[in-house]
Design a binder for these strands. Structure first.
Length: 576
RNA sequence: UGGCGCGUGGCUCAACGGUAGAGCACCUGACUCUGGAUCAGGGGGUUCCAGGUUCGAAUCCUGGCGCGCCAGCCA
């Protein structure tokens, strides 16, 4: 499914480019101050995904932050899987996550770590807490625990098992580990304060009984630590200095600190929270993304409409564009929603600079050049990228019959329409000037062919007399064109704030994908390698889809070009 | 009628007591063999509100208001 991708650009992502403006945000300020004050020689960060789904563009922000901070201050960033819940986690997700981070262009050396690597140590620390009288085994059910936790405005009440002896707690916890009890029979809880105004401090659960096979530790454990107990301690084991996480963990920080304080951990990490990424027209919730996939609203995690890294990759977004975007969105504590257009801007900027140009006609209409010799074919030299002279040129066949874009012709051109019309001369890009002499229609009145003449003196696209048509059209030789299916994409959701008014799934855009089955492409496109995105001149950026096969080409439209004509039309429509 | 956090142009951020700035978006013009790109210019902010401190407040204090998060044996 996932195409094999050429390695990302050689520039070391994460490391500041020599000419990059200094990136500044409150987290980098804190790190810089810690380094300047000599509290740490260099920062250690970590990216801690739970392997229960695919990475998405929101994770890219976190990845760029964690790896970026580490690189900029000469530190390091670990990849650590937060694999403490075996009922939701799978090896397939672990593999996909590693692949995606590599594709994005980040490198964590040999430091592929797992919270599960620390299960022994974590267990020993839990015992330490028991022996300090700071944790106890609670026999209450999940329901009972919920009922006695209190509410936002009322304190909770102590569990009847809260004052068990250290001996009894130690024995019971040991037996939980030995697998003597069924799921949910007992938990290990921290003994903090059932009346704490912060609910996370009301004797939070540290360990629960889960009889499930873990992707890495197999059946070795029948109890698993919760996020709260595993995360900070894992940070401490790894020597993480700045544990960067999203805002929803803010209220967990007092617990994070409490555990670090009461345990003989080897280092004292500090948790700092920042706002997660939100994007208009997009949902970045693993739960929802999983539903989109499992309910068949999209074809898979890597559907080109998905905001997953694999989806964006299949769509043709370059890793560099995603990295640039992550750098542009800023890091702050304000809950915010980024306009999707900023992502497009970042991607277009990279693609404009790097994508080779090709000719492709999505909605072909035939033109016949009446004064061009029948049977003649000539090869024209066409530049691969006007933004990059080193990209060279390629030969493109020209002949008497060509395909042009149907919408590049108007029998009755509206004002400000500069393209082909009866009697009007336009330039065929890198080829000749042609003038439309007549229109051939079928019985239904549909244009089936345009008869034209060309000016042989304009070969290459310039007129000796200096005259300049107002429009330049893309074209493909009818005798050489290869047919292809092209998939056009629009937002997966039809409103900028999906789900804001009721059911999220009711906001799915029914026109998020449009399939064009009879596109005509220049023949060089037939063997474009997967993972490469090119520009179809005047149309946008396109990339071969993995569904593509020899003789049955399939392309995805990555993005359109910026379209000011569409804007003019829209204005006209409003004014009319 | 709990706790924690956040409020600066349409969007995202900066300004860290000295009189509000950037990117994106938007508008205009130039240029152009992509109605793309590029270049030049422009509009747009009572810095949530109200008091207070100060020669001076987006920055400090007090009180409001609004928004977000927290009552999983998810992370």
């Amino acid at each position: 499914m996932t195409p094999e991708i050429p390695s990302p650009s050689p520039a070391l992502p994460g490391a500041p480019a020599p000419d990059a403006p200094e990136r500044r945000d409150f987290i980098r300020d804190i790190v810089a101050a810690d380094v300047a004050a000599g509290r740490i020689p260099a920062p250690v960060t970590r990216f801690p995904p739970e392997p229960n789904g695919y990475l998405h563009i929101g994770h890219a922000k976190s990845i760029a932050l964690n790896f970026g901070v580490a690189a900029e201050f000469g530190g390091r960033c670990n990849l650590r899987f937060d694999d403490t819940n075996p009922v939701k986690e799978e090896q397939a997700y672990i593999d996909a996550i590693e692949h995606d981070i590599r594709w994005l262009g980040y490198d964590w050396g040999a430091r592929t770590l797992h919270a599960s690597d620390y299960f022994d140590q974590l267990y020993a620390w839990a015992v330490h807490l028991v022996e300090s009288g700071l944790a106890y085994v609670d026999d209450q059910s999940a329901d009972q625990i919920r009922e006695t936790r209190g509410t936002l405005t009322e304190p909770g009440t102590n569990s009847p098992f809260r004052d068990r002896s250290v001996e009894e707690n130690r024995e019971l916890f040991e037996r939980m580990r030995a697998g003597e009890f069924p799921n949910g029979a007992r938990v290990l809880r921290a003994r903090i304060d059932m009346a704490a105004p912060n609910i996370n401090l009301r004797d939070p659960v540290l360990y629960r009984i889960v009889h499930a096979r873990h992707p890495r530790t197999g059946d070795a454990w029948s109890i698993y630590p919760t996020y709260d107990f595993a995360h900070g301690q894992s940070d401490a084991i790894e020597g993480v200095t700045h544990s960067l996480c999203t805002l929803e963990f803010e209220v967990h920080r007092p617990l994070y600190d409490w555990l670090i304080e009461h345990l003989p951990v080897p280092s004292r990490p500090r948790q700092i929270e920042f706002a997660r990424l939100n994007l208009t027209y997009t949902v970045l919730s693993k739960r929802v993304l999983l539903r989109l996939v499992s309910e068949g609203h999209v074809r898979g995690w890597d559907d080109p409409r998905m905001p997953t890294i694999s989806g964006l990759r299949r769509r043709g977004f370059p890793a560099e564009g995603i990295r640039d975007f992550a750098g542009m969105v800023g890091v702050a504590k304000t809950d915010s929603v980024i306009e999707y257009g900023l992502l497009e801007y970042a991607v277009r900027t990279v693609l404009n600079r790097t994508a080779q140009r090709r000719f492709g006609v999505l909605d072909p209409v035939r033109i016949v050049i009446e004064n061009y010799p029948e049977g003649q074919v000539e090869s024209l030299d066409v530049g691969n990228n006007p933004e990059d002279p080193t990209a060279g040129t390629r030969p493109v066949e020209f002949g008497r019959e060509l395909w042009i874009e149907r919408e590049d012709f108007a029998e009755d051109p509206p004002p400000k329409f500069f393209r082909l019309a009866p009697g009007r001369e336009v330039r065929l890009r890198n080829a000749y000037f042609v003038t439309c002499t007549s229109v051939v229609k079928d019985q239904a009145g549909r244009v089936v062919e345009l008869r034209c003449t060309y000016d042989p003196a304009t070969r290459g696209g310039d007129a000796p007399d200096g005259r300049r048509p107002k429009a330049t059209l893309h074209w493909v030789s009818a005798a050489h064109a290869v047919p292809a299916e092209v998939r056009l994409y629009d937002q997966l959701f039809s409103r900028p704030d999906p789900g804001a008014e009721g059911d999220l799934f009711a906001d799915l855009n029914p026109d998020s994908e449009t399939i064009v089955r009879n596109a005509m492409l220049e023949p060089s496109l037939a063997d474009l390698p997967g993972g490469e995105t090119v520009q179809f001149e005047r149309l946008g950026y396109f990339t071969p889809d993995p569904d593509s096969a020899p003789g049955a080409l399939v392309f995805n439209r990555t993005l359109t070009l910026k379209d000011t004509w569409a804007k003019v039309q829209a204005k006209g429509a409003v004014g009319a």
